[in-house]
Structures are given as structure tokens and as C-alpha cells.
């Protein structure tokens, strides 16, 4: 199973980026092989629709679960339509977040956690 975590850097020691559409990187971890792919987010500088694009990127990468800090309504709609689970409110190190999810300590969100355009910076 592929898990994507929004990250400030390229490694498992990096901090979770609280933003979804405008995060620095997506770390995509394959839990079957423990292979890690660091994907630079093309949407960091985009002026609008970054969350929608990031959602489609997750779908095209075959991600099944996304761990992040916050997700707005548009991105949430894309992610849900693609059948991807989301956990919001995640913070700390990537490795810690991954461990917590594997241990069943994180439960998927039912609703977007923030309003539109929250992650603009």
C-alpha cells in the first residue's frame, strides 16, 4: 500500500508539512517494500487550484492514504472522489507519523480541516 505524507524535506527525518496543496514535497512510502519516493510538489508557487492538482497527482501515483496537517474543501473533494483516505492534523517527523499510522493511532478525516486557500504562501 502506498502512503503519501506532506513533507518539508526529502527524507524520513524531515518534518511533516502542515499544508497539502502547497507542501514542499510528497514522500510516498510503499509499505510492502518500504521504498520511499520524494516527489517535489509542482504546485508550491501556483496562484490557485494547487490542492486540486495535488489531489490528482496523488491519484495518478496510486496513493491510498494521505497524511497531512490540513486539507481544504476542493482538495478533499478530489481525494475522496479518487477513493483515497486522508488523515489531517498530523505533525512531527515523517518517520513518527508513519509509525503512528501503521500502529493504527491515526484515523481518517470525514471533512476538510480548513477553508479554501488556507495554505497560500
Amino acid at each position: 500500500m502506498k502512503i503519501a505524507i506532506t513533507s518539508e524535506g526529502r527524507t524520513l527525518d524531515s518534518a511533516v508539512d502542515p499544508r497539502f496543496g502547497r507542501c514542499g514535497y510528497f514522500l510516498i512510502i510503499d509499505t510492502d517494500t518500504d521504498k520511499v519516493e520524494a516527489l517535489q510538489n509542482p504546485g508550491t508557487q501556483q496562484t490557485g487550484g494547487a490542492g486540486i492538482q495535488a489531489g490528482q497527482l496523488m491519484a495518478s501515483k496510486g496513493v491510498e492514504v494521505v497524511l497531512t496537517g490540513n486539507m481544504g474543501p476542493n482538495a478533499f473533494q478530489v481525494i475522496q472522489s479518487a477513493g483515497i483516505k486522508v488523515v489531517t492534523g498530523v505533525s512531527g517527523k515523517i518517520s513518527e507519523a508513519l509509525r503512528a499510522y501503521k500502529d493504527g493511532k491515526l484515523s481518517p478525516a470525514e471533512n476538510p480541516s480548513v477553508g479554501s486557500k488556507s495554505g497560500m504562501s
Partner: peptide, 18 residues
């Protein structure tokens, strides 16, 4: 140009406000 459309396998999403 306004990112008002998202295309997923089997589904097209439209965001009217954009």
C-alpha cells in the same frame, strides 16, 4: 487556466467557483 476541472479515472470533477 483556472484549475476548475479535475480528471480522475472514471470521473471528472468541476469546481464552479473557480
Amino acid at each position: 487556466a483556472y484549475h476548475a476541472l479535475a480528471v480522475l479515472p472514471g470521473k471528472v470533477l468541476f469546481f464552479p467557483q473557480m
